[in-house]
């Protein structure tokens, strides 16, 4: 099966065919991303690349975006609580970015009208890093950052 797939890929060449195969269910589902998951946005490794992939350009630093229940020092990088809230009207999405993680974008939350711009979750951090909260509101991007010191990395190292 694996050989065949490689041969098919070689001869037909191109991502479109791969996508067709995936759609037809011929490729093991282990290789298929969940519908609606944006690989282009998550497969980025620097702040600039992630912001570009999100279409955020150069976000305005805003004190209307704030962290809450987020530690200054995380003893365990595998479980770092992050809370983000925004006072900006018409918030559309909240993203959490960890600058020095292997993949910068940790999570992206889309907020339909009626959902409050307040989210909390837990993320992994490889090392001490700046963490950014990026809020899209009224079509523009706003950001705030905070350094979290990690005493034990969260990537099994």
């Amino acid at each position: 099966m694996d050989m065949n797939r490689r041969q098919v890929l070689k001869t037909s060449g191109g991502a479109t065919f791969l996508a067709l195969l995936a759609a037809a269910g011929w490729i093991p589902s282990a290789y298929a991303d969940a519908p609606g998951w944006s690989k282009a946005e998550f497969d980025t490794h620097t702040m600039d690349a992630t912001l570009a992939a999100l279409g955020a350009g150069k976000p305005v630093t805003s004190s209307d975006v704030a962290f809450f229940s987020t530690p200054d020092i995380a003893e365990n990088g595998a479980v770092v609580p992050i809370g983000v809230t925004s006072k900006l009207p018409n918030a559309e999405s909240i993203a959490i970015l960890v600058e020095k993680n292997p993949f910068t974008l940790a999570a992206l939350f889309d907020l339909p009208a009626g959902t409050e711009p307040t989210i909390s979750t837990r993320v992994k951090m490889r090392e001490t890093s700046n963490v950014y909260a990026l809020v899209k509101a009224g079509g523009k991007y706003f950001m705030t950052s905070k350094e979290i010191k990690v005493t034990l990395g969260g990537c099994g190292g």
């Binding site: 609606g36 998951w37 940790a106 959902t115 909390s120």
Partner: peptide, 22 residues
């Protein structure tokens, strides 16, 4: 729909999330 999220691998094991909607 009151919330959709996309996650990378950086979200912790046994993920926790909280939010509010009206």
């Amino acid at each position: 729909v009151v919330l959709t999220a996309q996650w990378g691998t950086a979200v912790s094991k046994n993920p926790f999330m909280s939010f509010k909607f009206k």
